[in-house]
Design a binder for these strands. Structure first.
Ligand SMILES: [Mn+2]
Ligand SMILES: [Mn+2]
Ligand SMILES: [Mn+2]
Ligand SMILES: [Mn+2]
Lengths: 217, 217
DNA sequence: AAAGAAAGTTCGGTCACCCTAAATCGAAAA
DNA sequence: TTTTCGATTTAGGGTGACCGAACTTTCTTT
């Protein structure tokens, strides 16, 4: 159907579009580690395939078709991550790189089987929603931990930015999806938070960490 | 390490070398569905990487390094097939195409985990040996069913040529690895065999089928 | 041994995907 | 409003992987 390169452009453009109102060639270039002229020509190619609306010097926009294709690739990525964690025993910090490759496997039966064996999961191991077979994806209305107040008790529901180092940091603090924690205090100087959970009495989390944790109250 | 194309050439050359004494550019070309000039230039490229001994107009030969690399790809292919059958519930006729893609995944942890979850299997679902981590592969000394005699009782140990149609044919006759069968008679005209097994009293198997079944006495 | 057929190579392309350097555009600053 | 500078496109190249056409070598047949 689509080449590996095309799939990675589509998926990345889709993800960036969920974070920012406007996505430029430069943004996509930086995220993919591919130079701008290359990105421009790929956008023109995807435009001929009716996956992207492309106009010179304008922000990049996926077509409805492009959004659906992208969401289906993300579906394969997240199903894979879930499978690797739940059925194969990998840690949540190990699965992204493998899923980055397996998401390009062309076999609907393979992903349908994963889905079935997992019991049709709605979320991946990092708390992100798994798009359905039609490419529909719904994010629950979570807050960032950094936006919570002193005294709040919240439950961790998802992690933004799933880099291996960040996830290893969370492992070292025994922080995981579903964990309930209470905000003891917020340092006004740097917005770091002191929180308690389980047997941990007073863990300090920097603002950078708190901005990457999504919670529910 | 190697590109997807290089890996497919290596693996196919290795497999053909196990079937025939000499493998020519033409053989590889036909098996891969790639034209001869392309095969020639890839052989030259693999020669510069010390994976193939290449001399104009001579049969193709893998170097020891090339044999090892190829066997390790076949290892990944067969581990995958075994995993798909044993852990995911696919039929043995469904797994080859998926494994053809997954064999190119670059993650030693992923294949090590499959191996572990499978309990370090020695054979794939079609009875072919899985090369070890050093690329060592041993075929047991099996006979073709077609070489057996009237009255022999044999156990099916492997299938040569694992095309989906052939495996579906075997499914329809309830023939599988481990099945014991007895040769009732051999038709001298076309070398077809009448065999009995389980509740099947008199199945006729053509010579073409009998040549594709490996057995142990 | 000569001729013809098959196999293999060489040569000149194409296409996908990537790059750098140079030109151009457009938004922010002067 | 003009300047300036970052963002973007254009132009020109490179590599990997494929192809067909034409040529050469080797094998087979007579
Ligand atoms: Mn991921
Ligand atoms: Mn990917
Ligand atoms: Mn196979
Ligand atoms: Mn393959």
């Amino acid at each position: 159907m689509h080449s590996l390169a095309e799939e990675n452009y589509l998926k990345t453009l889709f993800s960036l579009s969920n974070d920012k109102a406007e996505v430029n060639v430069n943004d996509l270039s930086k995220r993919l580690g591919i130079k701008m002229p290359t990105v421009t020509s790929m956008m023109k190619k995807l435009a001929t395939k009716k996956l992207v609306h492309y106009e010179s010097y304008k922000p990049l926009r996926l077509t409805e078709k492009g959004k659906k294709e992208a969401a289906l690739i993300i579906r394969k990525h997240r199903l894979t991550e879930m499978y690797l964690v739940e059925k194969m025993g990998f840690g949540w910090e190990q699965v992204h790189e493998i899923a980055e490759q397996i998401e390009h496997i062309q076999s609907s039966e393979f992903f349908a089987k994963m889905d079935e064996l997992l019991g049709y999961p709605k979320l991946d191991p990092h708390g992100s929603p798994i798009p359905d077979k039609n490419g529909k994806m719904v994010w629950s209305a979570y807050s960032k931990l950094s936006e919570c107040k002193k005294g709040d008790t919240v439950k961790i529901t998802a992690v933004i930015n799933t880099s291996e180092e960040f996830l290893k940091f969370l492992n070292s603090r025994e922080i995981h999806i579903g964990l309930k924690l209470k905000i003891k205090s917020i340092e006004p100087f740097d917005n770091s938070m002191v929180v308690t959970y389980d047997k941990r009495n007073a863990e300090t989390l920097s603002q950078i960490v708190c901005e990457r944790l999504l919670v529910e109250k």
